[in-house]
Structure formats: structure tokens, C-alpha cells
Nucleic acid binder design. Structure first.
Lengths: 188, 188
DNA sequence: TGCGAACCGGAGGCCATCTCCGTATGTTAT
DNA sequence: ATAACATACGGAGATGGCCTCCGGTTCGCA
């Protein structure tokens, strides 16, 4: 999957700048920020942007891969220090909080758990799903979670909690409450 | 609130055509359908559209008022024939199903339960909230619902269930399941 | 029938997305 | 060092959506 030939130096420079700027702009203005504006702020023509990232989603994904991976890694830490049920709850809480804070992350997490979407399951989407699966299964094994829900259901419902919370205030003050309501239902 | 002078005949005609076409187009293409396109399909200049409906939201609201009112009225019927808890569940189910079927209704229902949004609470938003309040309070009175949730929380969470369900398949096949999970949590 | 008020239509300004291709720059071999 | 080639750049411009503005039309009333 690595390039046969390494990227040209200028290409690599631009690629990196775009990634950095995109992360900032998406976080500030949300996932619908102007791509031309991102290109401009990166000191690059729009053609260059579209060559590196064929569409908005591709750029969004590339810009937030690291955050997604961090979130996935966080699941492991929590699993070590907390009982399965609490670990799941805490992880979902951090996931939702991150989703609200970093505008633009939401649709990315959403598309990671979409069925009929683009066939290509992105790497970071897989990480998140893997992390969720481990936490969910551990919780189920311990009886802290009903057996008839799948990890992907949990992720989707967490996404739903974020949506619900956004209606309330946009700062995520209701996340914890809505999430514990949800967990109550998931407990069985 | 009624017009001092009745609308001119041509104005009324156009107004009505726009409403009809808008309902169709929003249902088909979602809330982001092209307004110019709606105007064109209604055989009207875009100026005319914007004169009657200053912005997208206004048109959306006008186009779906009847559906919203029907949904609100449905709450009363269900309350008569079912015990409170089931009535609420069933009503939420119909609400969510309608939200998915008629693309464009979702954001309308969403903004009805948004806090920091436009100050003007629309009439149909109030109807929906009233209907929800009655069902929720009846259910709480009977002990079928925990006492520390407000009607608006329930509506927001239902909106969240729709979001979750949309990630799954776009036809709402998971609504019932997700909703009963939610209700489980809301029961206390 | 004629007049004023009400209303219409669509051209056009603005902004965003995305493509295309002449030009510039990095890279490699000599 | 330099030539020569592949690679990448950039920004003009096509397309399409939003919304405004105003010359022209139509309606309704006397």
C-alpha cells in the first residue's frame, strides 16, 4: 500500500500542510467548511487539494485519523483500569464528548458504522469498531450488557446520543445523562 | 395574524402550488433540495418563492405543518386505546417512522426541540411538544416512566434513535428495536 | 375601462465545488 | 552540472445553488 516511488518533496510538503490546516478548519467550522478556503489557508491551489484528496470525506478522514486511533487506543487503557461495564460507559462518554468538541468528527464516526455506505472500510473505522467490539463483548461476558446487541448497535446509538445532545445545547452538557439512560436500557 | 386584506388570487395560487411542490421535493430529495428547483417545478420565479417564504426553514415548516399536526393529533388517539406506557412507545415509533419516510421532516422536528435555536417557537412545534408532554406525564403518573426525564428529553432521544437508525439502513428497519432499548432505559 | 397597488419573473451577484491543462519544479541519469 | 522526463502545481473557469432587486405585468376595485 506504500507508494512505489516516494512522493516528491513538494508534494509531501503540501500534503502535510493541507492535513494540518484541514484539521484546524474542520474543527472550527465543522465538516462543511469551504475546501477552497482550506486550500487557500494552506497556501495551495484548489487543484492540489483535490489531487491529494478526491473529495471532502477523504480529507476529513485523513485529517482525523490520528484522533480516531487515539480514541480506539483509549479503549484499551480503560479496560485495564475499570470493570467492563464501567469501561464501556466511560469510553462511550469520551467518544461522544470528542465527537462534540471536534466538529467534523461526527460524520466520520457516523460513516464508520454505516451499512450501505462506501464499500471501503477505512482503517480507522475498523480500529474504532474493533475497540468497541472488545469492550462490548467483555461487558456482555460479565453480564453488564444484554447479549442481543452488537457492537455496531452500541456505536450507532452513541452517535444518536450525540445527536440528541446537540439539540439541547451544542456543548454536550447532556451527554452523560443521556448516555446513562441508554446504558440502562442496554443492561437489559 | 390573518391577512388584513386577502391575498390576491394569483398570489394565493402560487403560494399553494409552492407548498404542494415543496412537500414533494423535500420528501424526495431531503431538506437540502434546491429551492430554485422547487420554484421551477412550481412554474414560478425564484423571486416569488422567496417573497412567500423568506428562507428554507420557513418553506419547510409551511410544507409540513399538516403532517406535524397529524402526528400531534395521533397522540390523543393512541392515549385513548392503549395504556400510557404503550401509547408513548407506539407514538414515538410512528413519529420516528414518519421522520425517516418523509425526508426533510427530521430537521423540522429537531429544531422544535432545540434550545438555543430561533426564538420563535412554531405552532406545530408547540403541538408536538404538547402531545409529547401529555403522553410522558401520563406514563410517569402510572409509573411506566422514570420521573426525572422531561418530555423534551424524550423527543430529543427519539430524534437520536432516528439518527442511529439512519446509520443502519435508511429505511428505519431498526427503529423499533432501538426504541425499545431506549424505553427500557427510560423506564427506570 | 382605467388606475394604483400588489405581485411576478428571472437576470445577476455571490460563493462553493470540482476539473482541466499550461507551466513550474523536483528527480535521476549522464 | 545539466539535460530531460515525470510529477506536481495553481488558478481560471464551468457548473450549480442561494438570494436580491427592480422593470414589467396582473389583479381588483371604482
Amino acid at each position: 500500500m506504500t507508494q512505489v516511488r516516494p512522493m516528491r518533496a513538494d508534494a509531501r510538503r503540501n500534503y502535510e500542510r493541507l492535513l494540518k490546516v484541514a484539521a484546524e478548519v474542520f474543527a472550527e467550522h465543522g465538516e462543511n467548511a469551504s475546501l477552497d478556503d482550506i486550500a487557500k489557508r494552506a497556501g495551495v491551489g484548489s487543484g492540489t487539494l483535490y489531487r491529494h484528496f478526491p473529495n471532502r470525506r477523504a480529507l476529513l478522514e485523513a485529517a482525523y485519523t490520528d484522533r480516531m486511533e487515539a480514541l480506539a487506543a483509549r479503549a484499551g487503557e480503560l479496560a485495564e483500569h475499570l470493570p467492563p461495564g464501567e469501561a464501556l460507559m466511560e469510553w462511550l462518554n469520551e467518544l461522544c464528548a470528542g465527537t462534540i468538541q471536534v466538529r467534523g468528527l461526527k460524520s466520520l464516526l457516523g460513516s464508520a458504522v454505516t451499512d450501505g455506505g462506501s464499500a471501503a472500510v477505512t482503517a480507522c473505522g475498523a480500529s474504532i469498531k474493533g475497540a468497541a467490539a472488545r469492550l462490548v463483548e467483555a461487558a456482555q461476558h460479565e453480564g453488564a450488557l444484554r447479549a442481543d446487541v452488537e457492537p455496531v448497535d452500541v456505536l450507532r446509538l452513541a452517535h444518536g446520543v450525540v445527536s440528541a445532545s446537540e439539540l439541547a445545547d451544542g456543548q454536550g452538557r447532556h451527554i452523560r445523562r443521556y448516555l446513562s439512560l441508554l446504558m440502562e436500557g442496554l443492561r437489559g
